[in-house]
Amino acid sequence: MHILPLSEFRANASAMLDLVEQGETVRIMRHGKPVADLVPPSGSAGPERLPSWKRPFDPVVLPAGQSLADAVIEDRARAAW
């Protein structure tokens, strides 16, 4: 845990947020009394918590001789809209 006065936090806010991003806790003091703790979010954003459009995916492998356009047309024909 890093403990620092408010004035030092203001001067180094970006560096302190980098520490929190790495899993550290930062306590901010005002007049010698703790006023805030910066902690990492409770649930880390693993792949299962990411929106579907941000999740990693396997590359598309097309059969030899099939164009991407043909594959898209074929996929749309099979989809149940």
Rank of each mutant, 00 (worst) to 15 (best):
G65I: 02
L50F: 00
P56L: 05
A69D: 10
R10S: 00
E48T: 08
E8L: 11
L68P: 00
L38E: 04
I3L: 14
S52C: 05
V39T: 13
M1W: 07
V26R: 00
D58P: 01
R78A: 15
L38R: 01
R30F: 06
D37V: 06
A77W: 06
L6T: 08
K54E: 08
R10L: 10
A77M: 07
V61L: 13
A79V: 06
L50H: 03
G65E: 06
V60Y: 00
S42D: 12
A45H: 03
G65L: 05
R30L: 05
A11Q: 12
M29T: 02
R30V: 04
S52W: 00
A69I: 02
G46C: 03
R76H: 12
R49V: 07
I28W: 00
M1E: 10
S14W: 12
R30K: 15
A79Q: 11
V61H: 07
S67L: 10
A69V: 07
L68A: 10
V35F: 02
R30W: 07
V39M: 15
Q66T: 11
S14G: 15
G46A: 03
P40D: 07
L19N: 05
H2M: 15
P47A: 10
S52D: 11
A15C: 09
E48Y: 05
R27S: 06
R49C: 09
D70G: 07
K54Y: 09
F9G: 02
A15S: 14
A15L: 14
I28Q: 00
E21W: 12
E74R: 08
P63M: 09
L62C: 11
G23E: 08
L4R: 01
A11V: 00
W53R: 01
L4W: 01
I73C: 04
A13I: 09
W53S: 03
S52M: 02
D18H: 13
K54V: 00
P47G: 08
R76M: 15
S14Q: 15
A71D: 00
H2P: 00
D58A: 14
A13M: 14
L17D: 14
G23C: 04
S67G: 07
L6G: 02
G32H: 10
V39P: 05
V20T: 10
P40F: 10
R49L: 14
A36W: 08
M29S: 01
R76V: 12
L38T: 06
D58G: 08
H31V: 04
R30H: 06
K33G: 06
A77T: 05
K54W: 03
R10P: 01
V20D: 03
E74P: 02
A69E: 13
I28N: 06
P59F: 05
L50R: 10
L68G: 13
A15W: 11
S52Y: 03
R30A: 12
G65V: 04
A64R: 12
F57I: 09
P40G: 06
S67R: 08
D70K: 01
S44T: 13
R78M: 07
P41M: 11
D18A: 13
F9V: 02
A36V: 13
W53L: 04
L62F: 05
E21D: 15
E21M: 12
A69G: 02
A45K: 08
A80M: 11
